[in-house]
Nucleic acid binder design. Structure first.
Length: 416
DNA sequence: TCTGGGGTCCTAGGACCC
DNA sequence: TCTGGGGTCCTAGGACCC
């Protein structure tokens, strides 16, 4: 309806974790900074200038930039400042769609009589975030979400780019296809084989050819994006569709005991997060990655939602053991993951599967109701004394976790 | 030089039902 | 009884994003 008005904003904090570290310790300002220990989670612009990238092993990063300053990470501060920035955005419109801890779309079409047009609001957002919170933030302004997102990427670092209605083609055409949402390394390589490097070149490819090149859905979507046809609305408060947890294990020899322990730890995390949301899940998926990055998944769908730690653990252990049995040649497990999807409301009195608890051969193991009571008690203790205060059996003494819980919590999309 | 953890969406084949 | 078409659900894998 307001297509002729640049009223969609994409606001994206610059090198967020690294910027927060430079804010907390002014001695780091202007220096190449990396957040993380074994792996770079975020790099400041000074570090990026040396080629340091997030996801890079720390050793490689030091080779590229010997002066690189590594800091451990203040996860609580990231959460607090990320929330504070969202608070600033919310002062301009309730139509804020938070995409991650440091990024959001805004639809300000209803706010112009109060605050001015999109460009003016974007400038005001940048000023307030800088003055009140001390952080650089880039903003893209355009007629669609997709274009606003590209504009904010082009604006970085610490910039503002407005794509005026009517100037879209001139803006998009020279840009590399990799800036399109949904074009990663695989798709980019396929397009490049056909000599397609810019969005303008992509826009000239016929829809049929494009679908043949990258698949039906991706082809249709890319064609639409390249033609600047993006009908997605800003959608505040989307519900999550799955909840999962995973742990990299280094190089762990295949064996049932460590697998069982790790799965129990992961299932406990996932189940307690589900309960905190009042959700349960019908489909349980386990991921096992072997040496050489070969990875397999096994899943099962049960008639009613699961949210108890023990039930999820049993299902997941069974799936993991099945995957191991299917690959007798594998020597090492390098990663395990547990994920629950097909989410439903957590039933007030949960109808659990007739699993071990109801199996006469395993008399003495807790029934569904007893399991719920155990979980509820654990959840309460943890709420008061912290996650590590108490746990299920071996989970307390379970495998060393590669990554702090605070970072895991940060990576969840739906905030604290 | 093979890197973490949390997600979304799509594809393709098979089972099953009408 | 045979054939066909359509829809839905499930499983496994892959690409992509932050």
């Amino acid at each position: 309806m307001t297509k002729d008005d640049a009223s969609i904003l994409h606001a994206d904090l610059d090198s967020f974790y690294a910027s927060v570290e430079q804010l907390l310790d002014p001695r780091l300002a202007g220096l190449p900074v990396a957040v993380g220990t074994g792996v770079v989670l975020a790099a400041s612009y000074e570090a990026k200038a040396y080629g340091v990238r997030s996801g890079m092993p720390a050793r490689r990063a030091r080779e590229l930039c010997p002066r690189l300053r590594f800091v451990g990470g203040n996860f609580r501060e990231y959460q607090r400042l990320g929330d504070a920035v969202m608070g600033v955005l919310g002062d301009f419109t309730p139509r804020v769609e938070r995409v991650s801890i440091d990024e959001a779309f805004l639809d300000v079409s209803g706010a112009r009589h109060l605050f001015g047009d999109g460009a003016r609001i974007a400038g005001e957002i940048r000023r307030r975030v800088r003055e009140e919170l001390g952080l650089p933030i880039s903003v893209g302004v355009a007629t669609t979400k997709h274009l606003a997102k590209i504009a904010s990427q082009v604006a970085k670092p610490d910039g503002l780019v407005v794509v005026e209605p009517g100037s879209e083609r001139g803006f998009l055409d020279p840009l590399p296809v990799g800036l399109l949402w949904g074009v990663g390394p695989a798709t980019r390589a396929r397009l490049e084989e056909r000599g397609i490097r810019t969005i303008g070149e992509l826009a000239r490819v016929s829809p049929a050819v494009l679908r043949g090149l990258v698949g039906r859905a991706t082809g249709s979507r890319l064609g639409a994006l390249a033609a600047n046809d993006d009908g997605r609305a800003v959608a505040p408060g989307r519900r999550v569709a799955s909840v999962g947890a995973q742990s990299a294990l280094g190089r762990c020899p295949v064996g049932e005991a460590p697998v069982r322990e790790t799965i129990a730890f992961l299932a406990d995390r996932v189940a307690s997060r589900l309960r905190a949301k009042g959700r349960a899940g019908r489909t349980v998926t386990v991921r096992v990655r072997f040496g050489g990055m070969r990875s397999v998944t096994r899943s099962v769908t049960v008639p009613s939602g699961v949210a108890t730690t023990l039930t999820l653990t049993e299902l997941a252990v069974g799936l993991a053991c099945g995957a191991l049995a299917d690959h007798p040649g594998e020597r090492e497990v390098t990663l395990l993951g547990v994920s629950v999807s097909n989410l439903v409301p957590e039933a007030p009195v949960q109808l659990e599967l007739p699993l071990a608890g109801d199996d006469p051969r395993q008399a003495g193991t807790p029934s569904g109701l007893a399991r719920r009571a155990v979980d509820r008690a654990l959840d309460e203790v943890r709420a008061r004394f912290g996650r590590d205060a108490v746990g299920h059996g071996s989970v307390v003494f379970g495998p060393r976790r590669g990554v702090p819980d605070a970072f895991r919590a940060l990576a969840e999309r739906d905030g604290p």
